[in-house]
Design a protein around this nucleic acid. Sequence first.
DNA 1: AATAAGTTTGCAACCCAGTTGCACAAATTA
DNA 2: TAATTTGTGCAACTGGGTTGCAAACTTATT
Lengths: 138, 138
Amino acid sequence: MKKSIDKSLEIKKVKPTAMRQLVLDILSKQDHAIGLPELEMQFAQADRTTLYRTLKTFVDKKVIHSIDDGTGTIKYAVCTDTCHCNPSELHVHFYCIKCGKTTCLTDIPIPDIQLPENYFAENINMVVKGLCDRCNRG
Amino acid sequence: MKKSIDKSLEIKKVKPTAMRQLVLDILSKQDHAIGLPELEMQFAQADRTTLYRTLKTFVDKKVIHSIDDGTGTIKYAVCTDTCHCNPSELHVHFYCIKCGKTTCLTDIPIPDIQLPENYFAENINMVVKGLCDRCNRG
DNA sequence: AATAAGTTTGCAACCCAGTTGCACAAATTA
DNA sequence: TAATTTGTGCAACTGGGTTGCAAACTTATT
Ligand SMILES: [Mn+2]
Ligand SMILES: [Mn+2]
Ligand SMILES: [Zn+2]
Ligand SMILES: [Zn+2]
């Protein structure tokens, strides 16, 4: 298996089981964020529960981050090795209503907002819905 | 009281049936955004489908707006009479992980972000997750 | 008024992503 | 080795959302 996969798991302190290596490898190859059902389909035969728990472990250990794009299916994408998923590190996500793909706009940090007095932000989910560059011509 | 309900429906061009008046009245009285299941519970006996379709009509006609707060249950809150739900009119929402309430931060507009070339934004969902002022002391 | 057409409502059945319980397998520790 | 912890697989369940269809109601036409 890939060196970088094991390295990532090691950095985030996740035991590199065969299943986890496989899942992270698949997630790393995606050009867009995918959900549990889509992940399931990339296996000839795989158990939903195991994949589900693998994703959960990954999110807990910040190997990947989850994106609620409003479609009813939570999407996932890999984090950088240095990511701690703090509000200040988060980026904007984009959901294209034509091709249905959810993508990380890694270059666009979520703007800092001034919450009302005494509010505490632990996490922020910002999803822009519209047309991606591929779908927005013709 | 009932006057303003009918007025709102009229402005948004929704026929004021008994059901719709009732639902909008309930929604107007909330101090936080509520979902279909919670709405259903506010009736002694009510049909989920009718409430579901009422909410859908309201969203379509921009009487209310929907909020995906990441809990798996879409929440709804009334729009202002002048709201057209354009990206520039949208505000930030807050989900409190302690009291579980989702609220409109109507005073905090969603910051304008610079999308990559050729991207088109139709809608934006921005939800801050954390502790609300009530829950963030003690 | 009577009829026809369109709209709204109610019931039942369904979909599907997510989740839990439990038993078995594999890895780790004593 | 034996005991303990951790990971995996199967099945069954949950719950919010959604659809199909028929009855009730409203509006338009004759
Ligand atoms: Mn991302
Ligand atoms: Mn709102
Ligand atoms: Zn697209
Ligand atoms: Zn709270």
